[in-house]
Design a binder for these strands. Structure first.
Lengths: 224, 224
DNA sequence: GCATGCCTGCACGAAATTTGCACATCCGGC
DNA sequence: GCCGGATGTGCAAATTTCGTGCAGGCATGC
């Protein structure tokens, strides 16, 4: 049976959630603060996490960010204020959906079912690497919460690099990935894009994320 | 039947693991500390090892490092803290996966099945020899955890040597392996590369890892 | 039509590597 | 102990690979 982790600092709300969700046939377990949420979330026990954003100390966004480093568990956000919503609709968090307070239990359960039904295919393969997040499908890139504007080519190159973390990709491989085979583009062109990409990543704080291995190729570094 | 070695200093956790794993149809046997783990692990009886990182005395990382010198048995780490996770994701350890405490037995079993199913094809052929680890695909070289920077040629030569441990390779063979046949490079050139390689390995602590057999060729020594 | 942004890729300087010469050493056989 | 071939070493030229500044070509939006 799928188990759902409920995270909210308000016991009353936790209880409402618990009842609604269990009545829908899912198991539940709870966390009252960010730290506990993180610990339980990382256990892998949860098939989905209902996560309140507004919590003292470690808030939901932060918990989500941490969790995403090691897990792709679906997350459904609970939000109280409109401006919180703005912060999660972006890809930043890798949130799967959100529900505003006050919410109707019935709607909440419906959202949960929808998320679980669409199953694993978290649809868009969102690439993560350290503080760097890339969603090629939506053409979005963020570093530690700040969004970075990339051009089409930059996005393609970065996506290819990120989909093979740590691996050294030869220039021809990269060119093929971006332009398709049997296309003739100069190595200098690739370099130009790499330069722009590096510049942007550097500015956003990911210094030296793209490494050059002389005579071999390009590698996606840690992006600490 | 596949037998799984459970290593943890906490008897309670060992028991949880034992029950979960046996219920999944695997046999188990246990070790309560690093020394025992090493002894049992080297016996070759285990088809997989579940290894706790946080143990007094000889910790899991050290056990893994030792085991890797002589075995490719799959290892699933148990970790309690995030910073431990950081240390194993690198290639250094050759860990196959990890599970955070507290963990759900179900997930643990799922991970075990996944690892065993994916079988041997540990994907990238990673060369190991004593404290020396070489990953040609990632163009990474590590000695006892410290990374060593190699150039393209050095990497090729070392890879060739490591893929024939203890065998003496004639110079022509080495040259062919690196440059392809019917290429004309001076023996002095190979010597130059060997010199640089030796220098780097020495500095990193692997002294005399590359031996010369006068009149015959080059051999990859133990790299103690 | 014009401004703006992106894609390409040329020319050139900067670096990182590779190569191998000239000479010192070493090894093994006699 | 001496000799010739096999190796190791210091060094610097030759080569290969990169990064950068810059400019033309295009497509898009106004």
């Amino acid at each position: 049976m799928t188990e759902i982790l409920i995270v909210d600092d308000d016991p009353a709300i936790r209880n409402v959630l618990k009842i609604a969700i269990e009545q829908a046939g899912y198991g539940t377990f709870e966390a009252a603060d960010g730290d506990a949420a993180l610990r339980l979330g990382q256990s892998g026990r949860a098939g989905l996490i209902v996560l309140d954003i507004g919590m003292p100390e470690r808030d939901g966004l932060e918990v989500c960010r941490e969790l995403r480093k090691s897990s792709d568990v679906p997350i459904l956000f609970l939000t109280a204020r409109q401006d919180e919503i703005d912060r999660i609709v972006g890809l930043e968090m890798g949130a799967d959906d959100y529900v505003s307070k006050p919410f109707s239990p019935r709607e909440l359960v419906a959202r949960i079912k929808a998320i679980l039904k669409r199953g694993q295919p978290t649809a868009d393969p969102i690439l993560r690497r350290g503080r760097l997040t890339l969603d090629p499908h939506r053409h979005l890139c963020e570093i530690g919460g700040a969004s970075v504007t990339l051009t089409a080519r930059e996005m393609e190159i970065l996506a290819k690099l990120m989909s093979h973390p740590d691996h050294v990709l030869a220039r021809p491989q990269l060119v093929d990935a971006v332009y398709g085979t049997n296309v003739n583009v100069s190595d200098r062109t690739l370099d130009s894009h790499l330069r722009n990409l590096r510049h942007k990543l550097d500015e956003a704080g990911c210094i030296d994320a793209i490494e050059t291995v002389h005579g071999v190729g390009i590698r996606m570094g840690p992006c600490a």
